[in-house]
């Protein structure tokens, strides 16, 4: 495990509780994410991984507790271009008439702001991001004509185009083959190490993420483990996770 630098906290969750009905899906979760972290979030199905991600992205608001982004409360946080988001593939409709370049250009939209048309700089940043993920040759292809692995690279490029400090990924390699999975994690490693970005990854692929991430969270409504990923493999929660079918192993 590489030496961690926890000098700069960029996201802080303090005693978060969230429920859709009467029972808490997220219960008393506190967590600090630091600049440069590569955080893997694992847990059993229904354990609250995606809900936690949505809370951190401001898509849901907690019933109690606070979330701070770059030292400001999430409700007052304005600089969302610092945040990149790679959703699950299913968000895009099968009939969407959208090319790879149009998808990646979206990463620049919020940065440009309302009433401003994309500029030459936006175009350059879009093409740069496509180059980073090795998808420049596909820029005129429709997103739906690409393989799932290629599509996820495009969504990474969209996140990169906004020049973020942190990228959230929601099960980005669900349903892709092993070779594509390895290529994808190799790309994440490059982004983390070469670009120095903070990564937060929800995944079922514990055996891979345990060797890639710098830190691991095991969530089952509350955080039951936070620390060294490889240590996690030796502990009791790993076996509990296998029992509950929350990983691909």
């Amino acid at each position: 495990m590489q030496k961690l630098n926890h000098s700069q906290t960029i996201i802080k969750l303090d005693k978060i509780c969230f429920s859709f009905t009467s029972e808490n899906v997220i219960n008393d979760v506190s967590l600090e994410i630091h600049k440069g972290d590569y955080l893997g979030i694992v847990g059993p199905n229904g354990g609250g991984k995606t809900t936690l991600l949505k809370l951190m992205l401001g898509l849901l608001y907690p019933q109690s507790g606070t979330i701070n982004f770059f030292n400001s409360d999430i409700k007052d946080f304005k600089d969302w271009s610092k945040i990149g988001y790679v959703p699950q593939r299913s968000n895009i409709g099968n009939d969407s008439p959208i090319t790879v370049e149009e998808i990646v250009a979206m990463g620049r939209y919020a940065k440009r702001g309302l009433f401003h048309f994309p500029t030459k700089e936006d175009k350059e940043k879009t093409l740069d991001a496509l180059m980073q993920v090795d998808m420049l040759d596909h820029r005129n292809s429709l997103i739906n004509d690409l393989s799932e692995g290629q599509q996820q690279r495009v969504f990474i490029a969209r996140a990169l185009a906004s020049e973020p400090e942190i990228i959230f990924l929601d099960e980005p390699t669900a349903g892709v083959d092993i070779k594509t999975q390895k290529q994808f994690y190799s790309l994440l490693r490059k982004i983390h190490k070469e670009l120095g970005l903070t990564l937060i990854l929800i995944t079922h692929e514990l055996d891979i993420v345990a060797h890639e991430a710098t830190e691991l969270v095991y969530i089952n409504r509350t955080i039951e483990y936070y620390g060294d990923p490889e240590e996690f493999l030796k502990g009791k929660y790993f076996h509990e996770l296998i029992g509950k079918g929350g990983i691909n192993h």
Partner: peptide, 17 residues
């Protein structure tokens, strides 16, 4: 640009601000 983003991926558009 905002309409296209929301039409294609409303959740990602919201996250982006």
């Amino acid at each position: 640009k905002e309409l296209v983003y929301i039409t294609i991926d409303e959740e990602a558009a919201r996250v982006s601000g």
